[in-house]
Design a protein around this nucleic acid. Structure first.
Length: 881
RNA sequence: GGGAGCAUAGCUCAGUUGGUUCAGAGCAUCUGCCUUACAAGCAGAGGGUCCGCGGUUCGAACCCGUGUGCUCCCA
């Protein structure tokens, strides 16, 4: 059969993915086999595939495919997250482009648009994952706002509320003035930001009159001075002792506020005097609570100043800042301005500066549910890879704060709280239940329509924390067959960025609602960065178009590219060139396939073998088993990148560069049938080993190697168990490689062309070893005859390998000065080596303290070195003669 | 300010209870080759103060201390 010049990845990808779907290879139902389950971290429903997904999902697919080929019942569940803030922001923007304001729509009208949007764009990302080759069980695709899932989320809210773990409270929260919603602490990104520190005069009041004395206050937020409730100094600060208990005047609005003292103040920062604005700063808020200060909120929900501010009403906070600085300067309140850099919180979703804001929100009391979730990680019921994240996790869990779960959004799970017009409320799944409960609780009769449901939605993570069991309908259909079989799941693969958002909370939810951990191990991937180490992001434009890369290089090459660059647990610097390496690897496999296929018609049962092919076959069989074992160990430790490198090298170096050359018949010569068959067997096993990493080319090549039955597919082919290896055969293989490399190099150094034939004499005590590999040596180094000798051969080039001497006899006389230099260099090295060993052995304290086996090893080294030195000296002597 | 991690070849990283003269791999670079599957290839080569300093030890890339630099998390 004639094969194409190159592997056609596009047709192979389409063909084999469709075939697997048709045969239901990726779908799983409970049976007698051991399950292996992964739930995919659900991407945003409106998202598109980026390099982070590529890494994450490739890793999961490798794990799932390998488990499947190990004979486990592998189940990988896909799905999407409704991503309340992100999706709502996109819908709002889409409406704005159509000229529709969200405020002009009713909740139902808005949600209709949102669902339309979701139907249109939702799930694109899942289609893209198919292109990458992900072997997901599509029948189980779940969305966090599916009806059942929705009900479970509401049920969980009610359950926690009834247990007293959910409460409503007025707290300082992070507010996104653009999205007009509360944010959890984790949704606020701190960034170093250049600001100005303004030094302002606050005049001191004495006996009811404003004096010309003042105290200097340093602030980066002059627009909030109208919200000041006090000025605070350190009680021990000598500079301000005379002001304790006095009043000062807020500039521009002339409101008097007290001077208070608290040790919280840092004396040497700014002027050592702090303005306290409890409504607009978290620390000030706490200070205000302690000193019972008035809370003066001067901002609207969109970040503009409100009536309470008195001045610049309606102006945006940053515009107001500029204007107020001008005003302060005009009136002589501004003493100086300094550059100042500090960390400012930005909304993760909208990238505007988050505003600390006091508001009434729903909270989860985390202390109680966090404790067991910490325990299971500390006692290693759940293992983290790499384990360094365990510390991070513990630190966070021990200092956990309550979770703000309400969001002022419409897209999401609506909070099941129902209010009367006095603000009394009940928590219930629907209006009917709410009415009944209200009647019972408040003893008043209410009619339908009289209770108003909370307008707000729940934080997205309040639904995704149920993911590992809700994809199996764990709460809707408790104890169902799927849940019992697949839960707890095995491995969670995710980015360390969401260890607190998601991983920690899933562990809590699993224990709280299923009494079982959600997964047994968590593998944290690195963050994908570009060659300069920058995080890939849309705004930098350094995130490549993955689909285009797949089209250009092939899915296998992209999978290879991202995995080979991905050391366990570290960030990876990704560059397109790694895809080239993957594509080149495809090419190598394809060419090896072409070579082997060329032999198919040339097999014979008689007389083709020189005998040495059998050694090659035996050696590669052992080598294969050895590497299979190594790979298994690496995979258990989640060292996927190293496992792939190991397989890469086995195929490229051991199989292609060595083995195939060793068994390759001469031009138009036949190949012994048994050698051919074994070669095909090895090729199959190599493809199988590589399949989880590069599923398409391996499946294609597998089918081209032999004619297959209908369902004889690599995707579902179970691995054979690893066989024991024969160390003697492996050692001889290593010696053979070394001899070939060294003699090739020697020819090269003596200007003997690779094709120029030579004669070789070997001085060895193990002639029988060399008998097994003679013909391979001849072929690989272009040797005419090999003989054995007991003494140095004159007019030859001498090389020492291990303990054996090789005499190369070239056709033409050669200058042996290069050789002499080489031997002298080797001799010098060995003498140095010997003296270092002797130094150790002559050191009494070494003999006393070192372990006996170490001392033994040193003695052996000494003997070896002495033997080699003697051999080289003899060679040198022969050379001079 | 508190906590964590990292520092090995030009780049990305291995280096498994301290024991070969141990300093390694891949990529990149350079040299020679269109050798009967593969130039997306083959055969070779060069390249390092294992961040600095001090200590423990017979022996340190590895353990301890310290300095410097970088990254991340939390306030």
């Amino acid at each position: 059969m004639e094969l194409n010049k190159n592997f056609d990845h596009i047709q192979a990808e389409e063909k084999w993915y469709a075939h697997a779907i048709e045969k239901n290879y990726f779908s799983s139902t409970p049976d007698d086999r051991e399950p292996y389950t992964i739930v995919m971290p659900p991407p945003n429903v409106t998202g598109v595939l980026h390099m982070g997904h590529c890494l994450n999902n490739t890793i999961q697919d490798v794990l799932i495919r390998r488990a499947r080929m190990e004979g486990k019942n592998a189940c990988w569940v896909p799905g999407t997250d409704h991503a309340s803030i992100a999706t709502e922001a996109k819908v709002v923007q889409m409406l704005r482009e159509k000229g529709i304001q969200k405020a002009s729509l009713s909740r139902d009208e808005f949600l209709k648009y949102a669902w339309e949007w979701k139907e249109k764009y939702g799930g694109i990302i899942l289609q893209q994952l198919k292109k990458l080759g992900c072997s997901l069980d599509w029948n189980r695709t779940t969305f966090t706002m599916d009806p059942d899932y929705y009900n479970s989320v509401i049920g969980v809210f009610i359950d926690l509320y009834n247990k007293g773990s959910i409460y409503r409270g007025k707290r300082m929260i992070n507010w996104d003035p653009k999205a007009k919603t509360a944010l959890s602490d984790e949704e606020v990104i701190r960034k170093e930001t250049k600001q100005k520190l303004y030094h302002l005069k606050y005049y001191i009041v004495n006996e009811g009159k404003t004096t010309s004395d003042y105290i200097t206050i340093a602030t980066v937020r002059p627009e909030t001075i109208m919200g000041d409730s006090a000025v605070c100094v350190h009680p021990d600060d000598e500079r301000y002792k005379h002001l304790h208990g006095k009043q000062v005047v807020v500039p521009l609005i002339n409101r008097s506020i007290p001077v208070i003292t608290d040790e919280y103040v840092t004396m040497d920062f700014g002027s050592g005097a702090l303005k306290v604005t409890p409504a607009h700063d978290i620390n000030d808020y706490q200070l205000g609570q302690k000193h019972q200060l008035e809370i003066i909120d001067i901002l609207n929900e969109d970040g503009t100043l409100n009536e309470t501010a008195q001045i610049f009403v309606g102006e945006d906070r940053f515009v107001a800042r500029k204007k107020i600085v001008q005003e302060l300067e005009t009136h002589g309140y501004l003493l100086k301005t300094e550059d100042y850099t500090s960390e400012v919180g930005y909304s993760e979703r909208t990238d505007v500066v988050a505003e600390p804001r006091l508001s009434l929100q729903w909270w989860v009391d985390m202390k109680k549910i966090a404790a067991p979730a910490l325990e299971v990680v500390l006692n290693e019921e759940i293992n983290f890879y790499p384990p360094k994240f365990k510390n991070l996790y513990r630190h966070w869990m021990e200092n956990i704060k309550d979770w703000c779960i309400s969001r002022q959004l419409w897209w999401g799970h609506r909070i099941p709280a129902w209010y009367d017009d006095q603000g009394n409320y009940v928590v219930a799944a629907n209006e009917t239940e709410a009415l009944a409960q209200y009647r019972e609780q408040f003893g008043r009769n209410v009619e339908s329509g009289q209770l108003k449901q909370d307008e707000d939605c729940l934080d997205t993570w309040f639904s995704s924390w149920l993911w590992p069991f809700e994809v199996f309908n764990g709460l809707n259909n408790p104890g169902n067959k799927d849940l019992a079989y697949y839960y707890p799941t095995n491995t969670l693969v995710t980015a360390p960025e969401i260890i607190f958002f998601w991983v920690a909370r899933m562990i809590m939810a699993g224990i709280e609602f299923q009494n079982q951990i959600p997964f047994k191990e968590v593998y944290f991937t690195g963050i994908v960065r570009d060659k300069q180490g920058r995080k890939m992001s849309k705004s930098l434009g350094n995130s490549p178009d993955l689909l285009e890369l797949i089209e250009r290089y092939g899915a296998d090459a992209c999978r290879f590219g991202i995995l080979i660059a991905s050391p366990a647990g570290n960030d990876l610097l990704w560059d397109e060139s790694s895809n080239e390496q993957g594509r080149n690897f495809n090419n190598k496999i394809w060419n090896a396939l072409k070579l082997v296929k060329m032999w198919e018609q040339r097999t014979t049962h008689t007389g083709a073998s020189t005998g040495n092919e059998h050694f090659a076959v035996n050696w590669f069989g052992n080598r294969l088993e050895e590497v299979k074992d190594e790979v298994a160990t690496l995979m258990k430790q989640f060292r996927l990148s190293e496992a792939l490198k190991t397989i890469y090298s086995l195929i490229w170096d051991d199989f292609c560069s060595w083995y195939l050359e060793w068994v390759k018949p001469g031009m138009d010569q036949p190949i012994e049938a048994v050698v051919y068959e074994r070669t095909i067997d090895y090729f199959e096993e190599l493809l199988q080993l590589l399949h989880p990493f590069m599923p398409f080319i391996t499946e294609e090549a597998y089918h081209l190697l032999r004619n297959r039955q209908e369902t004889d597919d690599l995707t579902i082919k179970i691995y054979k168990t690893v066989q024991k290896t024969d160390p003697a055969v492996l050692q001889l293989g290593t010696l053979l490689k070394e001899v070939i490399s060294t003699l090739r190099d020697t020819k090269n150094k003596h200007q003997i062309k690779p094709k120029d034939a030579i004669q070789l004499a070997i001085e060895t005590q193990h002639e029988q070893h060399y008998n097994q590999i003679e013909s391979i040596l001849k072929k690989q180094i272009h040797i005419e005859t090999i003989s054995y000798t007991k003494a140095a051969v004159p007019q030859s080039i001498t090389v020492v390998i291990q303990k054996d001497k090789f005499y190369l006899i070239p056709k033409h006389e050669v200058d042996n000065s290069a050789q002499k230099a080489q031997l002298e260099k080797d001799l010098e090295y060995l003498k140095g080596f010997l003296s270092s060993v002797e130094k150790k052995l002559n050191n009494e304290r070494f003999i006393q303290n070192a372990k006996p086996e170490v001392v033994e090893a040193e003695k052996r080294k000494k003997e070896d070195a002495e033997t080699k030195i003697r051999t080289i000296e003899e060679s040198l002597a022969a050379l001079i003669v």
